[in-house]
Design a protein around this nucleic acid. Structure first.
Length: 801
RNA sequence: GCCCGGGUGGCGGAAUUGGCGAUACGCGAUGGCCUCAAAAGCCAUUGUCCCUUUGCGGACAUGUGGGUUCGAGUCCCACCCCGGGUACCA
């Protein structure tokens, strides 16, 4: 036995045992144990893992181990989100096939995850770029197409001129491309969409059934953005057309003094074909998203010289075209109520339009509640009551209906890119869009010469591949040249893990119904909206088609914080990246894993500092030394309880409570540190050998989920057993409570003394004991005690004048 | 602007339902032991201030100002600062 803690010998030793014995593999045959599916978010393999991965998998692995030792059958798989832009950009630069660079990264990830000692069932591993996997991504696409949930339409799309590709709304940050930072333009293109909006209400509703951090739920709710209101028709008599508008404030209808259309509205030129209108619309459409978004205060627009009729007042009100109205939301036209809407107010001031208040709620523009005014027969009513009555009246007159709108848009999945999953349809002159038959899947990616996008997908340049025949008529046809958004891959990968080798179907329903839902999902909060929303949509859609039986993929979610360096995100450009490999080489995987958890509450961001790792390594080393130096004997404690024995039971209780749902790994590790400190004190003060050995074994057992190699080593040394085969320890309640407490004596809420008292003493006894405190008497100075507040088991507080 | 988080020692953080000296645990710092010496290790001290009692002494401390309470880091009101999400969504 070496006399120094040496992770370099311990860690490979146990990794070999776990690999040779297939320790973490689970079959799909249920047994009497309850199942538990623990999953960390699919990593994107680029270069080598970074410190954030270390944190994610350290959290996930701790949960997986904790769960196993509570008798659960744990599915804990791993795979790779292998399609995507970075590999393709690398290919454009270097000519290296994205598959090669991606698979090289995957090998690096595999090696490191093994060196970290993460307990993964490697038999279920896959990359989303493998044809045996994306075959089923395509299959799912075809099912969505069959059910009308995938469709194609021409749409104004966000276009990044630098990446030469379409971006989803969510890939546009402040009007710039999320990946390259280039200003985004608008283009009209035929694109594939998933009809996620059809599920908006269920996505909203079912959040009640899952245990997610409240702020993530809020973010998704805001993203879906459900608003209730009414659709009201405004008639343009000159053209004889009813223009519907959506409003959340039908109670302000009497205050609508003008009407505004979005520049993209198809009827703008029909209403007014003048050069000024054309000029305005053109300039609005050519503005970048950023320019248009930035003009919050300065409202622009052009009058259309037409009027519509306000359906409640019968007034003719003027029509405008203005860029503050968005075509994508509601009907692309609004009724403007300047007295009760800030934007309309700004516009009215700029164009000198009448502002008529209809609710007494303060100075215009005000959006609060109050009694109605200037609203005919509704005057004097509370505006909330008027709301319902006005909607009812509109409905009875056929002038409007109550209506719901969402901020959520359909999911644009087309990407003009090479390194993605091909969309499995062909275009035939006679039959239009024709799905590729299931038995011809996968539509494999062709080899191409040049990966650079040129306004269309690089796939479109692979003539042999693009030119095919129609599956229906056999005539020449063209393949779809776009690939899918990589969020499609990550929307179902967790289902494939359940049944990864199935070559008849993406997964077997029975198997998926056994493992799903994921009991604990772990990942970065940056995926709070998109990935999590898309995956929820896929599961609901697949469930509706009968392919699986759950409505929600992730029953519980934990979002971990980032690891920062000097308060900044780590990034290559800042040159402040900490490589997990370097830390592990120096301190060992156990120390690195413990440290990222010990840094602070794992759901919060934490600042990295190298010094701290040494402290955690010292703790592990002290545990190892305590084991090596432990006196010979049995680990089953007998004889009278000692402080050391009590401390061991205290630590069991503390670690267990910290881990159960609280994810307070930092305080759990601190508790084991306290136990180790007590072992040193106990050994010095001559605690019995059995207590020392029990305490060391307990520390090893408790630290195992965080530092599995050392935990296994020390536990074996103390007991000859394998710690992962042992149930999680249970604290003996008799050793948690002591018969005597230190009773706190307070005077007007301030502590004056602490006196020993029996734990079971009654209120009266406690008060009496406290009264006898000498220090209390000294402080009382003969003052009168007015009242005594007794908190049993804790304190007595005397109140004096 | 709106919606979430969060402000506690020199630093990361703890205090789980208002109740046992707030500051566990770790880092850093200081002193000691070991050593020819160093490293490592071990042990101890470490919120700030005050003192003709250096003491099992006192006062003050959880962003700021008020409040509720016998008692507030924890609850309420107002404000300041930091981080995240979102933004002409009618």
């Amino acid at each position: 036995m070496p006399d120094r803690y040496d992770p370099k010998t311990i860690e490979p030793k146990w990794q070999r045992v776990w690999a040779d014995e297939h320790t973490w593999e689970v079959s799909n045959e249920p047994d009497e144990r309850p199942k538990s599916y623990v999953l960390e978010m699919l990593p994107y393999p680029s270069g080598e893992p970074h410190i954030g991965h270390l944190k994610t998998y350290s959290v996930g692995d701790a949960v997986a181990h904790f769960s196993r030792r509570h008798g659960h059958r744990v599915l804990h798989p791993m795979g790779y989100d292998a399609f995507g832009l970075p590999a393709e950009n690398h290919a454009i630069k270097t000519g290296q096939h994205p598959r090669e660079s991606t698979e090289a990264s995957i090998r690096e990830f595999q090696n490191q995850f093994r060196e970290w000692g993460i307990s993964i069932d490697w038999t279920r591993e896959f990359g989303t770029h493998e044809p045996r996997v994306y075959r089923w991504t395509q299959w799912i696409f075809l099912r969505l197409l069959e059910h009308g949930l995938a469709y194609r339409k021409e749409a104004a799309v966000k276009w990044c001129p630098n990446d030469a590709t379409v971006l989803a709304n969510e890939q546009v940050i402040d009007g710039r491309c999320e990946r390259c930072g280039h200003l985004v333009e608008v283009r009209q293109l035929e694109q594939w969409f998933f009809r996620i909006t059809e599920y908006a209400d269920r996505l909203l509703e079912d959040m009640r059934t899952i245990e997610w951090p409240p702020h993530v739920v809020t973010m998704q709710k805001n993203w879906i953005g459900r608003s209730e209101g009414a659709e009201v028709g405004f008639r343009c008599e000159e053209l004889g057309i009813d223009y519907p508008v959506f409003t959340t404030r039908p109670d302000t209808l009497f205050g609508a003094t003008f009407f505004v259309m979005a520049p993209e509205h198809p009827d703008v030129f029909r209403l007014n074909d003048s050069p000024e209108v054309h000029a305005y619309v053109n300039s609005a459409l050519n503005e970048s998203v950023e320019e248009r978004g930035s003009e919050h205060t300065e409202k622009t627009g052009v009058p259309l010289g037409r009027t519509v009729t306000n359906p409640v007042t019968g007034e003719e009100i003027p029509m405008y075209v203005a860029d503050y109205v968005l075509m994508e939301y509601g009907t692309g036209a609004i009724m403007a109520v300047p007295a009760h809407d800030e934007r309309d107010f700004e516009f009215a001031k700029t164009f000198d339009l009448p502002i008529r208040r209809v609710i007494e709620c303060g100075d215009p523009p005000c959006t609060g509640d109050g009694p109605m005014v200037n609203s005919g027969r509704f005057d004097g009513l509370d505006n909330r009551e008027a709301y319902d009555q006005i909607v009812a009246w509109l409905e009875s007159e056929g002038k409007g209906t109550s209506s719901v709108n969402y901020r959520l848009r359909d999911w644009l999945l087309s990407r003009q890119r090479y390194w993605g999953c091909p969309i499995p349809v062909v275009y035939c002159e006679e039959h239009g869009i024709v799905p590729v038959p299931d038995d011809q899947l996968p539509v494999e990616l062709p080899e191409v010469e040049d990966y650079a996008p040129k306004g269309k997908s690089p796939l479109a340049t692979a003539a042999d591949w693009v030119n095919t025949t129609c599956p229906i008529c056999g005539n020449p046809a063209r393949r779809e040249g776009d690939t899918m958004d990589t969020f499609v891959d990550s929307s179902w990968y967790f289902l494939r893990y359940c049944d990864p080798d199935n070559d008849q179907a993406p997964f077997d329903r029975e198997v998926v119904d056994y493992w799903m839902p994921v009991d604990q999902y772990i990942g970065g909060v940056e995926h709070a909206i998109l990935h999590l929303l898309y995956a929820r949509f896929f599961v609901k859609a697949l469930a509706d088609m009968g392919y699986l039986g759950v409505q929600e993929p992730f029953a519980r979610l934990f979002t971990q914080g980032m690891i920062l360096r000097d308060g900044d995100k780590m990034s290559k450009s800042k040159g402040n990246v900490v490589s997990p490999q370097a830390v592990i080489d120096r301190y060992g995987a156990d120390a690195a894993r413990c440290y990222v958890l010990f840094l602070g509450p794992p759901n919060q961001d934490a600042d990295w500092s190298e010094e701290g790792v040494g402290g955690v390594q010292r703790f592990l080393s002290r545990l190892w030394t305590a084991a090596v130096q432990a006196p010979a004997g049995d680990a089953e404690p007998e004889a009278e309880p000692t402080d050391l024995l009590r401390k061991a039971h205290w630590a069991i209780d503390k670690v267990t409570r910290d881990m159960e749902g609280r994810f307070a790994f930092n305080t759990a590790i601190a508790a084991v540190m306290e136990l180790v400190n007590e072992i040193y004190r106990g050994a010095a003060s001559g605690a019995p050998a059995s207590h020392v050995r029990f305490a060391v074994a307990t520390a090893a057992s408790l630290v195992f989920p965080f530092a599995p190699h050392l935990g296994a080593e020390v536990y074996e040394l103390m007991t000859g057993e394998r710690v992962w085969e042992q149930p999680w320890p249970e604290a003996d309640p008799a050793l948690l409570a002591s018969d005597e407490i230190q009773l706190v004596v307070q005077l007007n809420g301030k502590l004056v003394d602490r006196v020993p008292a029996p734990a079971e003493a009654s209120r009266e006894q406690l008060e009496e004991i406290a009264r006898c405190s000498g220090k209390l008497a000294a402080r009382l100075n003969g003052k009168q005690i007015m009242k005594a507040v007794v908190v049993p088991g804790k304190l007595v507080n005397f109140v004096v004048k």
